[in-house]
Amino acid sequence: MRPNDRYLARGPRVAIRPFTAADRDEFTTAARESAELHHPWLFPPVTDEAYDGYFRRLQEPVRAGFLICERESGRIAGFVTINNIVYGGFRCGAIGYGVFAHAAGRGLMSEGLRLVMGHAFGTMGLHRLEANIQPANVQSIALVQRAGFRLEGFSPDFLFIDGAWRDHERWAITREMLPEDAG
């Protein structure tokens, strides 16, 4: 069980906390076990070297990474990253996320994403979060729809994923779109 003082926010079933170097073994094991679930949308680090590089990048000021942990066991259920963070008049970031196979289909990502959104719009001072999702990734689209994101557009050949440039839908949410009790 992880110490509760590391959690940034808590929900009924999950809590969020920053990534640590010590999470490498648990994270990469869960990523390997979830490869079939993630393909072809997502490729989280599955080796020690890949995790170490990923963790280093998450320490950059334009990024933030959050682990979604089951409150009862402390086990990592998934993750949300905020990338390309810009402050000033924009106060925006682009999110990426994934659930691990053992936690999929249980609503833990929905709860965890809402906690990250509250932290991003509160403590981090962001005004807008964006999610770029491949149109065929219906589960990911359903996740952001449940969280209140709106569809804002379509970007052809937007990201290079799995060996090709992939089209993406642009989804976004602003602080004003959150329910009063969410942020």
Rank of each mutant, 00 (worst) to 15 (best):
A9L: 11
P156E: 11
G53D: 10
G112F: 05
G89T: 12
M109C: 03
P179R: 13
A22Y: 01
G78F: 09
H119G: 05
I141Q: 10
T174L: 03
V62Q: 11
A31N: 02
E72P: 00
I141C: 05
M177C: 10
G98C: 13
E60T: 12
I16N: 08
W171H: 08
I173F: 08
R106T: 10
G148H: 08
A35M: 15
I133T: 00
A172W: 01
I16R: 03
A142F: 02
A30N: 07
V138L: 04
E60A: 15
A94G: 09
I76L: 09
P3A: 09
I141Y: 04
T174F: 02
I16Y: 08
A9K: 13
Q145D: 13
L115G: 11
R10W: 05
G148S: 12
L115R: 12
R150S: 13
Q134F: 03
N83P: 06
G163S: 05
A50F: 01
S73Q: 11
H168T: 13
N4T: 09
G183D: 11
L115Y: 04
M109D: 03
E130F: 02
A15F: 00
R106P: 07
L37I: 09
E26F: 04
G122R: 15
A131G: 07
E70M: 01
V99H: 02
A136W: 08
T20N: 02
I16V: 15
R56D: 11
